[in-house]
Amino acid sequence: MRTLTLIALTALLAVVVARAGPGRDKAERKPGAAAGRKRVDPDAMTDAEGEEFEKVRDMNLTDEQFEDYEKETEESGGAREKRQDVSIGNGCEVIGTVVHEIMHALGVFHFQSRYDRDSYVSIEMTYVTADRQNNFVKYTSTQTVNYTPYEYGSTMHYSANSFVSQSGAISIWPSDQDYVFTMGNRIVSFYDIKLVNSHYACTCASGATCVNGGERNPKNCAQCLCPMGYGGTTCSTRPAGCGSALTATTAWQTTLIQAGVDSQTLRNDFTLCTSWVSAPAGKTLQFNITGNFTTQCQYGCPFNGLEIKNKADLKAASPRHCCSNTFNKVISSTNNPTPLIAYNRYYITQFQVTYRYV
């Protein structure tokens, strides 16, 4: 079991926010809404405390070093709240799981607990034992605040088969069933980051002009935080790294998109590979996943998958694919270009995709 301080965890989240490539939301707690869980009050942080946070983050202290630092600060008259520990169990170090727990410490509920969840998911308790049904509680609008649209791809969302007692059973059905394998994914979404930035008033009054759903980065307002699939200073370019720029025609063409590294060690973070497919203005792109290599089919697509960014909300995750159930079906998109995003944290995954425009 690993225990990290709230300052260390918040620093980690700050790093995630700065990286921001993979960008679901959640219901956020209003002050006092959940007894026993400590909240951070952004309005209570003084300039001096903000400077201290920056200093401590850059020191990269171990827990023992932080305890010594905290003691010295208190003995020298420094005023600060006590730390809040978050425990990360062995085997749970994947970055999305760590951020999931950080977000709980920052006051965020699970996504499927939002008061508007019934418009987006159906909860099925038939195969969930009574002692586990508390995990599906729905909060009210007086208890929580929704800062973003509903996000199936949030790292705060449970998977479709969470807490079921029978193999093959489902506990959460998405209204848009294209998302059945997306829920429970542990890629940090754009809306995850936006949610925290909104709640803690981390915004920019002016700065970069962002496109493709991007928003100004509170750490550098001259640059944009980009949804997954977009990159560059203003989110106007394909993310750096593997992938290619493809041009569709009226005839089906085939591309092979690959992500991962040649090692059979499970990694704590994802490698991404993004291709863009373009068409003439006003045309609809069509895609079909016709082949795959070393995908692990599982709800949440936690090890690898392919996202074809076909939904209108570019900030949100589009459905992710890692199971044959969603292969060999035509997927349409009016996003031009449409990003194809392969992700992986175990070995190497390949997807064969055909594409054209109509």
Rank of each mutant, 00 (worst) to 15 (best):
L9S: 13
L9R: 01
G21D: 15
D25G: 15
A27E: 12
E28M: 14
G32I: 14
V40T: 15
A44G: 14
M45T: 14
G50N: 11
T62Y: 07
D63A: 13
G77L: 04
R83N: 10
Q84S: 14
E93G: 06
T97Q: 13
V99D: 00
I102K: 03
H110G: 07
R117G: 01
I123G: 03
Y127T: 05
V128L: 06
N134A: 02
F136S: 08
Y139H: 12
Q143Y: 06
T144L: 02
P149L: 10
Y150K: 06
Y158R: 09
S159F: 02
S159Q: 07
N161H: 08
N161E: 08
Q166P: 01
S167E: 14
T182Q: 03
R186V: 15
S206D: 05
G207A: 05
A208N: 01
T209W: 07
V211C: 11
V211I: 13
G214K: 03
K219R: 10
L225C: 06
P227I: 01
M228D: 05
G231N: 02
T233K: 04
P239Q: 06
L256K: 13
Q264S: 12
I289D: 09
N292Q: 11
I308Q: 07
K309I: 05
A312H: 00
L314A: 08
A316I: 03
P319G: 08
C322K: 05
C323A: 13
C323E: 10
N328T: 11
K329Q: 15
I331M: 10
L340C: 05
Y355C: 02
R356T: 03
R356Y: 07
